[in-house]
Design a protein around this nucleic acid. Structure first.
Lengths: 274, 274
DNA sequence: TCAAAAGTGTTGAGTCTACACCCATGT
DNA sequence: ACATGGGTGTAGACTCAACACTTTTGA
């Protein structure tokens, strides 16, 4: 097409006002304390990676890993790059979370962020943070109280609590609006809540829970992951029956844990015909 | 914070290379033919709004409504504006669909699009297109054939067929890749497929189907909407029982069709305690 | 020996599907 | 009258939560 070629030669995209684009990543993992009893499973907690900002804006506040999307990478690639930079590990389960584009979400100017959720399996030993930045895992919990969500992030003595109000605009878009002041940078508490609610919903139907574990795992480990995320206990006998359609036996046996060894399973790849 | 203020004064966001941001909107409605029998329900079809591009790039190709996000509006607001411009009506059910950020998706340069799905209730009489643009409703259907999705869009004699391959990258992001040449502009066939699969999944669990109908409707109408989208028939007796938790009676009665009048229902607002 | 977890079996409640059947209407 | 959609009832299949019970290990 000759005329299209000519059009493109005359077209300069730089000549229009436009926003900047960043990506932010909510990285989850499950951490455990050292065991107190030799037999008992150590307590495990769902955690999110945050970074203490070394530079303005929001200097010294904690924020999600993230940054500007480069000209030569897609948005998901940028998210993977950010996650790898902060943990040293390529995350699994990159899931799209949403756009965050409030007009004053960033004091530097008009910046639109595309947020992703991803998961680090607990056998990868991630190095939280680079030399340049101070990073840390925060235990996350969310509870609902008269229509508001209360998000709590906790790392040792550092505790952030944010109240967020669910909002449906006239077109049916749902978003979450902070009540009160920032304890996290930007609108990151909204991003984290959005991401967490997505994660919890998927985990209830056995989605994303496999990504927290190594390729081979016991059903009890898998059940524990689901329970930690959804905050709902289930009966082992029932869990193993419901999950059976998603897993298959490896033939290997776990051992060395003060009790009867368990069959190791792997995730079932395809939807096999029944 | 004095130092933050100073930082921001020295910060010029314009000095960085950055992509442009657009939004594209997949607008659905359900259309019906004129009735052939006085009694029988007219046949209904799910349709998507497309616009024939008047300008380069992709001049004379059909594309989704969309455009650049302005500096003074959020991304969802831009989507609502675009939808209103092309239909004259404010759409309901704006749902986030995804980011599309392939490096060469737009010949004008690096452009990232955030796509939305929205729905026009069939009682609004939308005026497809503005004076400036040629717009039209295309019947949409998707079928699966040995692992590929086949998307068909049809308006009178105009028929577009696109084959798309499901792709999971190593991080678990799923996307759909066109096989063969473009019959639609940009990567819009991928956006439409992504949107449609989301719509169908939600419709199966009674999501989004209400937005195709006026505020008061009969259960048969609602059932028809679900059947059109999911392409699965259900038994009326069972449908009405399953849907009962999402609706409530209005007390009004429909009439004037060649058969027994039906109770009109509305969407139930809250999750009432049982 | 025994605490802890692995794993199987069973029962009763509830849900879902398919089908049979009657109702009300406008032409 | 009758085709068409509105609406209720129900038997059998299936699913699921809860609980009882046996097995196997390492210290």
């Amino acid at each position: 097409m000759e005329s299209e070629k000519k059009f493109l030669e005359g077209y300069n995209i730089e000549s229009y006002d436009r926003p900047s684009v960043t990506t932010d990543v909510v990285i989850y993992t499950i951490r455990q304390d050292d065991s107190d009893s030799f037999r008992k499973d150590p307590e495990k907690r769902l955690s999110v990676l945050l970074i203490e900002r070394a530079e303005h804006p929001f200097k010294n506040k904690w924020a999600l890993p993230g940054g500007f999307v480069r000209m030569d990478e897609t948005v998901p690639d940028a998210a993977i790059r950010e996650a790898k930079e902060e943990t040293g590990v390529k995350p699994s389960a990159l899931v799209y979370t949403g756009v965050f584009s409030g007009l004053s979400r960033d004091p530097r100017g008009r910046i639109i962020s595309n947020a992703f959720t991803c998961i680090l399996s607990n056998n990868e030993k991630a190095t939280a943070g680079t030399d340049a930045s101070n990073a840390g895992w925060f235990d996350i919990s969310v509870r609902e109280e008269d229509g508001q969500y209360i998000l709590t992030l906790k790392k040792d003595e550092l505790i952030f609590t944010e109240r967020l109000q669910k909002n449906q605009d006239t077109s049916g878009m749902t978003s979450y609006i902070k009540c009160g002041d920032n304890s996290l940078a930007f609108d990151h508490s909204e991003i984290i809540l959005t991401s967490f609610l997505q994660l919890r919903e998927k985990a209830e139907s056995f989605g994303l829970i496999f990504d927290f574990l190594p390729p081979e795992f016991t059903l009890a480990e898998l059940q524990r992951v689901q329970e930690i995320i959804t905050d709902k206990a289930s009966v082992p006998a029932n869990f193993r029956r419901k999950v059976s359609e998603y897993v298959e036996e490896t033939g290997n046996i776990s051992g060395g844990a003060g009790h009867r060894p368990a069959m190791l399973y792997r995730r079932r790849v395809k939807e096999d015909v029944k």
